[in-house]
């Protein structure tokens, strides 16, 4: 997309009205464009003001305590993920994890139970969700009937200092892989939400790339699964 067109996306970005691809493209542009950064600051401020215009609804008194208790128990934890990425970690991922409990047999029953409640709440994974084994590593791909997908991986080695794992979705055979998220590996269990919908017959693959990710895969897929 040309620069002018990207600049015009500032308002939509401030309103959170971009899809994952547009957002990534705009954020890349933002790093290079001082004018957009300046514009974004005030447009984002205006957008956030809209929160104040809503009808007031009081949160339950317990919410404050719960937040503080959770924060306290976490202590200071550095989350090695990109901010937008962090936000998307609990809903469908948790739901998918409920399936993972069955799929991998790794999860404690109590955890599975609470995640199951989460699943009912978000209603993301339906009965028709498909589970596919990954080629190249221990893990599963979960795809809901609407195409929302997550990867559950076991013991993927850390990506390396200036490297990252990048997830790709190939929507149809022969089509260009679409960026679908980054993760850093090194955990006993990794749950990665796939940022792109995975159509029936679509393929999800993971490559190792330079840190920050790339626009097209530069290396051979390490593992993959066909939905």
């Amino acid at each position: 997309m040309e620069q002018v067109a990207l600049h015009e996306l500032t308002a939509a970005y401030a309103l959170d009205a971009l899809d994952a691809d547009e957002r990534r493209e705009y954020e890349n542009h933002l790093r290079r464009c001082e004018r957009c950064r300046g514009d974004l600051r005030s447009l984002q401020e205006a957008a956030a003001m809209l929160a104040f215009a809503t009808e007031p609804v009081a949160p339950p008194a317990s919410l404050r305590d719960r937040i503080v208790a959770r924060a306290t128990s976490e202590g200071r934890k550095v989350v090695p993920l990109r901010p937008r990425w962090v936000y998307s970690l609990s809903g469908p991922v948790a739901a998918v994890a409920a399936c993972a409990a069955i799929g991998l047999g790794l999860w404690a029953t109590s955890l599975s139970h609470s995640l199951d409640q989460e699943r009912r709440k978000t209603a993301v994974i339906d009965e028709g969700a498909r589970v596919v084994a990954l080629k190249g590593t221990r893990g599963r791909l979960f795809v809901s009937s609407s195409g929302k997908a997550s990867l559950v991986l076991a013991k993927v080695p850390p990506a390396g200092k200036s490297e990252t794992y990048e997830v790709w979705v190939v929507k149809a055979s022969g089509s260009k892989p679409v960026r679908a998220g980054l993760f850093s590996g090194g955990r006993k269990r990794e749950i990665v939400s796939v940022d792109e919908r995975v159509p029936h017959g679509g393929k999800v693959m993971v490559t190792r790339e330079r840190s920050g990710g790339v626009d097209a895969p530069q290396s051979k897929p390490l593992f993959s699964a066909q939905a």
Partner: peptide, 15 residues
């Protein structure tokens, strides 16, 4: 809504 607010504040905490 509680989930959204809780996660948002924890994101603030972590980030």
């Amino acid at each position: 809504a509680e989930d959204a607010v809780q996660e948002a504040f924890l994101t603030v905490w972590r980030n």
